[in-house]
Simulated assay, not measured.
Amino acid sequence: METSITVRNAKLSDAPRILEIYTYYVENTVITFEYDVPSLEEFENRMIDIMKKYPYLVIERDGRIEGYAYAHAFVGRAAYDWASELTIYLDHNAKKCGLGRKLYEALAERLKDMGVLNLYACIGYPKVEDEYLNKNSAQFHEHLGFRLCGTFENCGYKFNRWYDMIWMEKIIGEHTDDQAPVKPYSYTE
């Protein structure tokens, strides 16, 4: 039986499943530095805010959402419009099967179409790998062409331990002196 993989725009009705995926990471990892699982209403509001300008995508395998990814403002000032910070989460049982790459590449393509030039990822990074955090996210981004561009030492504290945070960057477009403005993402299909 052939597996069906689909990347599509997220809908608010997807929020319960997306939040289910995220909950695992809040409660069991340092992949997010968030301490408390947001309420469904708070999570939906976050989605709405992102969807005003940026893509928010899900990946389905045989009709079940297995992960999600979105972009958002890098800093929030007009001069940074051509840069976006990316976020991706896969169901913790759906790793190492190509879904992350497919989802991230779809997100990058949509951002490129908008006119975004620089992609950034903020990643928790352990000095020593432990049960809460390993180096897989940094390695995943490196495989997709991101490069390390900054390290913040001991800046995140969770589960009674200090962790570093690294920034990785990927350039996906040409920078010019007369750069066209970034277009908001359109959810029409």
Rank of each mutant, 00 (worst) to 15 (best):
I5A: 05
T87S: 14
Y70V: 02
G156S: 10
E131T: 12
G100R: 01
A180G: 10
Y25V: 11
E109C: 08
S13G: 12
P184Q: 02
D62Y: 03
L133I: 08
W162D: 06
K183I: 14
Y104I: 03
N118H: 12
G145P: 06
C122S: 09
I48L: 11
M1D: 13
A10D: 09
R147T: 12
T87C: 10
V30N: 08
C149R: 06
L107I: 04
E169R: 14
T87V: 09
V182R: 00
G150C: 04
L12F: 03
S84R: 02
R161I: 04
M51E: 08
C149V: 12
I65L: 06
F152M: 07
L19T: 11
W167G: 08
K96A: 11
H92Y: 10
G145Q: 05
V37A: 02
M165R: 12
H143V: 14
E189H: 05
Y70P: 02
Q179A: 00
G115N: 03
I88C: 07
P38Q: 02
G173N: 04
V26Y: 01
K95Y: 05
Y185W: 03
M51D: 11
E66P: 02
D91R: 03
V7E: 08
K135H: 13
Y185C: 01
D36R: 13
V75S: 14
T23G: 10
D177P: 00
W82M: 09
L148D: 15
F159S: 04
